[in-house]
């Protein structure tokens, strides 16, 4: 996947690049509007990560540019503004998703993949990872060709893990993904443990390889092979 990151905060830009690159993606970055539009004029990307508050103007200009040029880049807005107005404006101007800072890189990765999949679906709604096949439209999962029944949270978690395969994901990131960040973390960690235990058991029962590794004290890792 070819991704353009438009974000003025240098260390955040670098972190996103590092995290996304390790999965075979190619990331380019731009710190301001002008540069972003220059890049978009010359190259095509699969996905654009767009911060709204940039030093030389609002990120909406990039959205307008893409709309005028009838481009089909998927756009994910990453903004510190938690305002409904901006969210609606962004989504109406052609953005595909809206992520509020601060976010976990795992969440960003999962969203980028989801947005990209939606754009590039072309009738193929199946996500295949080794023996696991996920039907995204029907929200069903097959392992070795046999369907397994997952609860909503287990399904969400599996997608999240596959998007971040090979990475250590913190408990906080998973809990925020499943419950939002308004709820108390300590309560959620207990439920998280139960959900992961159940998911792992269901997968093992279907003769799936044991991908889920617990990383002591911090979180989980979904093996990439």
């Amino acid at each position: 996947m070819k991704i353009l990151i438009v974000e003025d905060e240098q260390s955040l830009r670098e972190n996103i690049t590092t995290y996304l690159n390790s999965d075979g993606n190619v990331c380019e970055s731009s710190a301001d509007l002008e540069n972003a539009i220059l890049k978009l004029e010359d190259y095509a990307y699969d996905c654009v990560l767009l911060d709204l508050g940039l030093p030389d103007g609002e990120g909406f200009k990039v959205l307008n540019f893409l709309k005028e040029q009838m481009r089909d880049e998927a756009v994910l807005i990453i903004s510190a503004k938690n305002s409904l107005e901006d969210k609606i404006k962004g989504l109406n101007t052609g953005a595909d998703d809206y992520l509020i800072k601060p976010f976990h890189l795992a969440e960003l990765k999962a969203r980028v993949e989801a947005v990209f999949r939606r754009k590039a679906a072309n009738g193929n709604n199946n996500l295949v990872f080794n023996e696991i096949t996920i039907n995204l439209q029907g929200r069903t999962v097959e392992i070795n060709g046999k369907p397994i029944v997952l609860t909503r949270k287990e399904y969400d978690m599996l997608l999240y893990f596959i998007a971040n395969k090979g990475k250590v994901i913190s408990k906080n990131a998973i809990a925020t993904h499943l419950w939002g960040d308004e709820m108390d973390m300590n309560d959620n960690f207990y439920f998280l443990y139960t959900h992961i235990k159940n998911l792992r058991k269901k997968m093992l029962d279907a003769n799936c390889k044991d991908y889920l590794k617990s990383i002591y004290g911090i979180g989980y890792k979904f093996l990439s092979e």
Partner: peptide
């Protein structure tokens, strides 16, 4: 209000992303 939100959220997201990288 908006600026305060932006200014505080950006460092927070830097911390979070640094942690996300660090645990790898």
């Amino acid at each position: 209000t908006e600026n305060a939100s932006h200014e505080m959220m950006t460092p927070l997201s830097v911390i979070t992303s640094k942690l996300d990288i660090l645990i790898q």
